[in-house]
Design a protein around this nucleic acid. Structure first.
Lengths: 237, 237
DNA sequence: TTTATACTTTTGTGATCACAATAGGCCAGC
DNA sequence: GCTGGCCTATTGTGATCACAAAAGTATAAA
């Protein structure tokens, strides 16, 4: 079965009201997002079906959906794998995040009320708590939650699905990143963002979001370090 | 069968080297993109399978893929339809296009060589020819081809799939648009873009792209006109 | 004429099966 | 020891079937 590396799934409870396909989709999505499937690892429908104890059918549909979201790549051989990363692609993904998310923040700004602002503050407080305790595991998910809460204030949402696609593509490398990342010393860009929101200052908000994204990945600003991460993830072919 | 409106598919030849699922996907995608399926129209797997003369299986997979690309919407009832448009959503889609595509153009600029520039000029010439002959049908597809050729110069492509998702969502309304659109009088922003490319002027290129997108839809700048289009497409429920 | 209810049909979901293509392993030849 | 071609096992694709949920329809009561 595990011709390459085994895959450790975090199997959630399967609610009866949710279709099996959706459950498989969420499970695989989390596995990709949190780097539990190494890039380059070939995935087969039957293997995953066996692993998740479902029939091949829901796996097929979930894989196709994830491929459409650019989380997985269908090779010419019809084989499915997590796309490999390159230094240039990594840069492009971060640049695309900055462009898209600063735009999404600007479009969301007019719709942010006090209730949502306090929700943002709450999430930020959780992040601070986790970092103070040295508990880096949930920070990545909480950070996403912060951004999602911000952008989804806009009730006519069209950018969030695109942004989530970028997150998915960067996901496998966030894990490698967080293991090496020094976050405690950095300026809290979330606070800057919330200040800008209170002042309804679109320019400042965009700047804060862009800085937040850039600093989240500036550990990789030295090409050698990034290259080591990429090599590490590709070592298993 | 046609409880609502019938669907006119443009059935392409099915190449043997292409899987049925891919062929169905392309066929449905074109139908959505060129407004052959009215928004709100409920789609059923078996109906489409019968219409396209394939088994339900490839249709299921194609529908799921299109839903993942935001071209179709899966309702709570598990029914699939082309999403309905609102004036606000239309605006958001255009704004997102401007943000994403101007960014994609900037990132592609360093990679554009003379060969690609002449390809762009060729496409633009075809557009001019078609418009001079009053042949508005292929203009929309050629315009997309122009933008795609420009952005895909960047070999580390990550934004193009996101941009295509936006095109798909706007697609159904391009048809309604082109029927009422006056294009002959407008400035040729493509020429401006190509001038900027020759001068390697990123700012001018971004401006040209943004203007091109804005003018492509400024027919809808009067809310009443846009509303009429939306109503028209929703009339059939 | 209108509304609530029972019945019939249709539909999405998921399982299983058949088949052609691909991959991986094996052995012979150099 | 290394490479090239054959053979077996595995895989993706697509078809068919079973089932429960949903939608549509007709009937009956008001």
């Amino acid at each position: 079965m595990d011709k390459n590396s085994p895959i450790e799934f975090t199997l959630a409870e399967r609610d009866a009201s949710v279709t099996i396909t959706q459950w498989v989709y969420v499970t695989l999505r989390n596995a990709v997002m949190y780097g539990q499937i190494l890039p380059g690892r070939a995935l087969t429908i039957r293997e995953l079906a066996k692993e998740l104890d479902v029939s091949p059918m829901p796996v097929r549909e979930a894989l196709r959906q994830l491929a459409a979201e650019n989380a997985l790549e269908i090779q010419g051989n019809r084989r499915v794998m997590v796309p490999k990363m390159t230094a240039m692609k990594f840069t492009e993904l971060c640049q695309a995040r900055m462009a898209l998310e600063s735009h999404a923040a600007e479009r969301a700004l007019p719709y942010i009320d006090n209730q949502r602002l306090s929700a943002l503050q709450q999430i930020d407080a959780l992040i601070d708590d986790a970092q103070r305790e040295g508990n880096h595991a949930p920070v990545s998910a909480l950070n996403q939650e912060f951004h999602r809460t911000l952008y989804s204030a806009n009730p006519h949402q069209v950018t969030l699905p695109l942004i989530e696609s970028l997150w998915l593509q960067l996901g496998p490398f966030m894990k490698l990143a967080s293991a090496h990342l020094e976050v405690s010393s950095q300026v809290d860009r979330h606070t800057e963002a919330m200040d800008a929101i209170e002042k309804k200052d679109a320019i400042a908000l965009q700047l804060a979001i862009k800085s937040d994204i850039r600093e989240g990945f500036n550990f990789a600003s030295t090409p050698e370090l990034l290259q080591r991460f990429i090599d590490e993830s590709n070592r298993h072919n």
